[in-house]
């Protein structure tokens, strides 16, 4: 039988080092003598799309499998994924879940937005990522924070885990990762051990699933096919965006076919006045239009979360 299990979930986007952060934390815990499970989970989505990783650690064998139902610790490397329902940042979060967000917004703003029942900490964006177009060190900052909040990982083990997991990426990248992780490890010193292993899901008094008997349904309904066109537009891929293209109407020469024909997602059209208009529901923020515009009328502006999930 298994003993107390630490359950940690890390959220971010493809390309932000979330998978690596999970592995760093897993290795650090392993170095401390824990049994460990770590895994990334991502669907068919691509670079920029939300992903998560999870880590379990225990002193005895871990019998749980797959995604974490009730996390003890949730770390969000990119605050823009909070509003993405599919990202599931708040899934299974309870009053005893410790939450950490990497954000430029202060803690009280996030408290107001999320109204968390449990502890919440905000980490500043790593120095290494400030002003950069893509966040590359936020995952590592979260790994450092997680190590400290669990309270059972030494700085030495954290360092060794980073050296191990990043071996082969080059000294400069390792050093900047070490710096980002250590900074958040130190920043959360006073909360060391705040994230404690949660209780397993009890076999008595549980909420009983309501199973149904599936019936054989009409073939047109029961076949994996779509009847119609362009239903994909219901998917708001604008939520992937970390950089927003902004059209400056005064600079726009109304040659929208240039920027529109360069947009892989078809997210640019002409407004009535002829000025290019970006469909922010779907623009993934690739920035191709910014480069394509011969008049430099489209600017790339970093995107930061301003909305609260319903």
């Amino acid at each position: 039988m298994s003993g107390a299990v630490y359950r940690v979930r890390l959220h971010g986007r493809g390309g932000q080092g979330i998978k690596t952060a999970g592995r760093v934390l897993g290795t650090a815990l392993f170095l401390e003598g824990f049994e460990v499970q770590d895994a990334p989970r991502y669907g068919a989505e691509r670079r920029g799309a939300p992903i998560f990783a999870f880590v379990r650690a225990a002193r005895g064998p871990i019998l749980e499998r797959g995604a974490i139902q009730r996390p003890d610790l949730v770390l969000v490397a990119d605050d823009t994924v909070v509003v993405v329902p599919a990202a599931g940042v708040l899934a299974g979060v309870t009053s005893r879940t410790v939450m950490v967000l990497c954000s430029e917004q202060p803690e009280d703003v996030w408290r107001a937005r999320l109204a968390p029942k449990g502890p919440l900490h905000v980490l500043p964006l790593p120095l290494e990522d400030r002003g950069a177009t893509s966040l590359r060190h936020v995952g590592m900052a979260c790994a450092g924070a997680a190590a400290r909040l669990l309270g059972v990982v030494s700085l030495a083990s954290l360092r060794k885990a980073i050296e191990t997991e990043l071996a082969g990426v080059g000294r400069a990248a390792i050093d900047s990762s070490l710096a980002a992780a250590e900074r958040s490890f130190v920043a959360l010193s006073e909360h060391a051990g705040a994230a404690a292993p949660g209780e397993p899901i009890a076999a008595s008094g549980y909420e009983r699933p309501v199973f149904v008997e599936l019936l054989c349904e009409p073939v047109l309904e029961a076949t994996a096919m779509v009847h119609g066109a362009r239903t994909s537009e219901l998917v708001k891929t604008g939520l992937w965006r970390t950089v927003r293209p902004e059209v400056h109407a005064e600079l726009c020469h109304k040659c929208h076919w240039i920027c529109a024909s360069s947009c892989p997602d078809g997210a640019i059209s002409a407004s009535e006045s002829g000025v290019a208009r970006v469909d922010y529901d779907h623009c993934k923020g690739c920035g191709v239009c910014v480069v394509a515009c011969p008049h430099h009328a489209i600017a790339a502006v970093p995107e930061r979360s301003t909305e609260v999930p319903k």
Partner: peptide
């Protein structure tokens, strides 16, 4: 459900949601 001009359908498509996948597979069985 036939492939026809003016009647767009997308067929044989991926189902990445585990519950929806379970439904479609079980419907074949039923």
């Amino acid at each position: 459900s036939a492939l026809r001009g003016g009647n767009p359908t997308s067929q044989g498509i991926a189902v990445l949601d585990p519950s929806a996948y379970s439904y479609f597979r079980y419907e074949i069985h039923l």
